[in-house]
Computed example of a mutant assay.
Amino acid sequence: MVKGDAVKLLQSEEVVENLEGKVDLIITSPPFPLNNKKKYGNKIGEDYRNWFIGLAPVFSKLLSEKGSLVIEIGNSWEPERPVQSLLHLECLLGLVNHPTSELRLIQEFICYNPSKLPSPAQWVTVNRLRTVDSYTHVWWIAKSDFPKADNSKVLRPYSKSMKKLLEKQEYNSGKRPSEHVISGDGFLKDHGGSISHNFFELESLDEKRDVRLPHNVLSYSNTNSNDYFLKKCREKNITPHPARMNKGLIEFFIEFLTDKGDLVLDPFGGSNTTGYCAELSSRKWISFEIDDSYIKQSKIRFQDPKISPPKKVHRNDSK
């Protein structure tokens, strides 16, 4: 983990020489384009747009030809108006249309969080003019139309109905009202699970429905009480980084878009969830963070027994 301004450091001659074309996945949640300044640092308005679009040539130069860039970003609102801003869309368009880069949007994912606090508060809880802004965008971007990817590595467990169908080896095939034609054997082969969707539920939308997470993802919840990092932060009376990227998202994209030994980079590391997930999955990683306090608390993650199992003490009974 490197302390400093990632954008400046990643353009330095030494870093470019060592990393150019070698990064297999850049995954990050940059400071969101909020109207109010946060402790972790964020630009606003036109400054944010210019800063964000300026990341395109930096990231493009670092990525390998088959590498991917995954960015999570939230919505923003016009200052003092109940009107949603187009800033995040302008940022996306500016990023993929940058004249000196080769980036293109491969697919958009939506990350829905039903426990998110009512936002924007002025127009949701005070004046009650708008509904709760409860999701973030996750953009999968790459230099090639065919970046490294394998959706068979992030399969979800089959639903109960699909398991029954596989047991029976029959179903109602034929033409549907939508005019789609379902073949007679298209759903009879067991592939080990169903293909993941581009919609992530941080908590289940339906309590009666089983949560079917990809096999490599333990949880999408950022408030998991069993989380080692959060438990240790409470014990040490440390306030954790307020905008941690979701572990489940990172685990999903690391498994989906990289292989063991590949290099993963997070330019806005915060408390270094990316480094932790990369370490767990046997990927090489580099994270950057400008705030020393977040770097210090990130060390807690690497005391997790999942990464550093306690050493066994061997007794020598002959002494």
Score class of each variant (00 low, 15 high):
residue 17 E to Q: 14
residue 110 I to E: 01
residue 81 R to A: 11
residue 137 H to N: 09
residue 260 K to S: 14
residue 113 N to L: 00
residue 265 L to S: 02
residue 243 A to V: 03
residue 10 L to E: 11
residue 2 V to C: 09
residue 178 S to Q: 09
residue 64 S to T: 11
residue 213 L to M: 06
residue 236 K to Y: 06
residue 106 I to M: 07
residue 82 P to M: 04
residue 114 P to D: 08
residue 154 V to H: 03
residue 39 K to M: 03
residue 75 N to F: 05
residue 222 N to E: 13
residue 102 E to H: 13
residue 246 N to G: 05
residue 28 T to V: 09
residue 192 G to N: 07
residue 287 S to Y: 00
residue 55 L to C: 05
residue 187 F to I: 04
residue 273 T to I: 14
residue 161 S to G: 07
residue 165 L to K: 12
residue 31 P to E: 09
residue 60 S to W: 06
residue 307 I to V: 15
residue 183 S to P: 06
residue 85 S to I: 03
residue 229 F to K: 00
residue 301 R to N: 12
residue 76 S to D: 02
residue 127 N to D: 08
residue 232 K to P: 04
residue 39 K to Q: 13
residue 179 E to M: 13
residue 146 F to L: 12
residue 316 N to H: 15
residue 61 K to Y: 08
residue 154 V to N: 00
residue 164 K to E: 14
residue 293 S to E: 13
residue 65 E to T: 14
residue 136 T to M: 01
residue 88 H to K: 07
residue 116 K to W: 11
residue 97 N to L: 06
residue 317 D to P: 15
residue 105 L to G: 04
residue 304 D to Q: 07
residue 33 P to I: 10
residue 216 N to K: 12
residue 90 E to Y: 08
residue 273 T to F: 05
residue 16 V to T: 14
residue 72 E to D: 05
residue 154 V to C: 05
residue 81 R to L: 14
residue 267 P to Y: 00
residue 260 K to Q: 15
residue 123 W to G: 06
residue 84 Q to L: 06
residue 313 V to K: 12
residue 316 N to C: 10
residue 252 F to R: 11
residue 104 R to F: 03
residue 291 D to C: 06
residue 214 P to F: 09
residue 20 E to Q: 15
residue 300 I to Y: 00
residue 314 H to Y: 15
residue 58 V to S: 04
residue 60 S to V: 00
residue 100 T to I: 11
residue 139 W to V: 09
residue 27 I to Y: 02
residue 91 C to D: 08
residue 68 S to W: 01
residue 118 P to G: 10
residue 101 S to N: 04
residue 200 F to T: 04
residue 197 H to D: 15
residue 227 D to E: 10
residue 134 S to T: 06
residue 115 S to H: 07
residue 240 P to R: 05
residue 102 E to G: 07
residue 228 Y to E: 03
residue 133 D to I: 00
residue 199 F to P: 03
residue 251 E to H: 01
